[in-house]
Amino acid sequence: MPEITYREALKRALREEMQRDPTVVIWGEDVVAYAGGGAYGVTAGLAKEFPGRVRDTPIAEEAIVGVGLGAAMGGLRPVCEIMTVNFTLVAWDQIVNHVAKQSHMFNGQIKVPMVIRTPNGHGRTAATHSQNFDAWFASIPSLKVVAPATPYDAKGLLKTAIRDDDPVIFLEHLQLYSTRGEVPDEEYLIPIGEADYKRRGKDLSIITWGRMTIESLKAARILAEEGIDVEIVDLRTLRPLDVPTILESVRKTNRAIVVEEGWRTGGLGAEIAATIQEQAFNYLDAPVARVAGLEVPMPYARNLERATIPFAEDVVEAARAMMRNEY
């Protein structure tokens, strides 16, 4: 199977869906030409291929999202790009009060088929440009929240998100755009709401998503050499959460570590850990552990940034401690 980048996988998903459905449109800041198309190059070339359907907007995130919502209600399928997840805060009213509410609040009178794509996570650009808001988005009923880790998942999930009649927040991790992985040429879709076993193992379950899936896979290789056989559940979708798959894995391995890049307090890891102890307490041989980011605004210096977010070695440490029954 050919290997392509996460960035290219996303672009192929956009192109295929735009070819398939003339109502799919894209707008956002600098999505037409800047840096080749979007701050991270995902939309490069699409404006030329689909005249009039890819639009640059002012730096006005509340309008980008609100106009997306209005256009979705007016018959289009907008894919709105917010240049970084940090800027979604400017659009929070539109996302939480409006985009997320329409379907339920108006008792199903209207559907909101829109996608908000945005790069999430750390990026060596310090406090206002290096954050993770996955847990915030995932806490809001009526949103669907997706955070793929691989090019294969990125493509399949973005195509599904565009066809979905509900609003989807699509979190792309900043550090993954240039990573490569196998993506078939033929079309495929990945359902929203289904986790994926990225590695099968018997000793403990690592439940994670996004960049931390990649770090956890690295950790798994190190741990395997030490005789610790971990299972990796890549959530892929953060809302609705695939609780059955999480429980299935934990009931088999009897140990769980939840790994996330964002802040520990109020993180999605806390929610998952609570769910496991509510629904699989009798299966646990150890308390559910958490590996998460430290609770500080992200510093700029690379060594300081590295000190605040988890990497493979943190996952390795946590797994070793759990297998030694140190908790």
Binding site: L69, G70, A71, Q102
Partner: peptide, 23 residues
Amino acid sequence: LGANGIVAGGIPMAVGAALAFKM
């Protein structure tokens, strides 16, 4: 396209619908 509890919340939606109409 909805009544709205946020005073300016509906204005971007009208603009979005206008864009959909124009296209």
